[in-house]
Design a protein around this nucleic acid. Structure first.
Lengths: 151, 151
DNA sequence: TATTGTTATACTCTATAACTATA
DNA sequence: TATAGTTATAGAGTATAACAATA
């Protein structure tokens, strides 16, 4: 602690992108801790959740929904399948494709993990008013949707 | 398009962390495009900005401000130094340390890049009211600050 | 002994090209 | 020829251990 007085990152904080990165790091760190006991990561949980909601989904559809590249999905699904949480069933009409189906264990674990995440987020955001929270959700949803309109 | 009707990621959207990740991806993609003409990345721009605001800063102070590990800062500063945007000056009182100082080119480029980022964010967020934008900034700042209080 | 900057290393996330088997 | 899933690979971002020079 021998340095000059410092101004820290006051200028950077004007930028929405910078603030969002730092806030997301907090939410992400929480998520890692909450999901670890379930043997899940953020991406494996996300994939499991979408498969539970959309049984029979194809891998390319899942990749598109999660906005990830097909090659990156393979390891995620391998992980979920080895853990016995999903199956890759053959599809009668198209022998190239796989139908993604959650197992009973997958459905149960997804529900438990979802509850844990909601509880964790409630605790983390407990100092915010419901209006602040809703506005933040609205803004983030709007930002994401703006890419589909503008481009 | 042979699959079943899909529910997409409706369940995942309940989670603040998931929405924040997707919104951040949009802001981050904008930032990459805006910074590319300046030869900067998000992390090199962030480091440059803090050095411009705090000339004479030590590397360990900069790492702490940006919440990155010291080893990861080395390549970032090498990149800025090779580009002639900062210098690593010797420090008289402590011959182990380096004082980070922006060059005139660094100060000028940082100002231009900052303007470009602000313009880009204004365009991206133009559909949001000033109140929505401010609330989002407040919420993200609060979330980040909550780690310093709670832990 | 402790600290500053550094090297080496590893793990995750992400992105692209090319392969195979089917269509 | 095009598509579904896969492999290989490479680039960022991030984290830890350990080293040399200096305190």
């Amino acid at each position: 602690m021998t340095g000059q007085p410092i101004n820290r990152d006051k200028t950077l904080r004007r930028f929405v992108g910078y603030r969002m990165k730092r806030a997301f790091n907090v939410m992400q760190a929480d998520l890692v801790l909450v999901l670890k006991p379930f043997g899940l990561r953020m991406m494996t949980f996300s994939a499991l959740s979408v498969v539970v909601d959309n049984p029979g989904l194809r891998q390319s559809q899942l990749a598109e929904i999660l906005s990830i590249e097909r090659p990156n999905l393979v390891a995620i699904l391998d992980e979920l399948q080895s853990a016995g949480l999903i199956r890759r069933d053959p599809v009668a009409e198209d022998r190239r494709a796989h139908a993604l189906v959650p197992t009973a264990e997958g459905v149960a674990l997804c529900a438990k993990a979802s509850d844990a995440i909601l509880t964790g987020e409630d605790r983390r955001l407990s100092g915010l008013s419901p209006e602040q929270r809703q506005t933040a959700l609205d803004v983030m949803g709007w930002i994401e949707a703006s890419t589909r309109e503008t481009r």
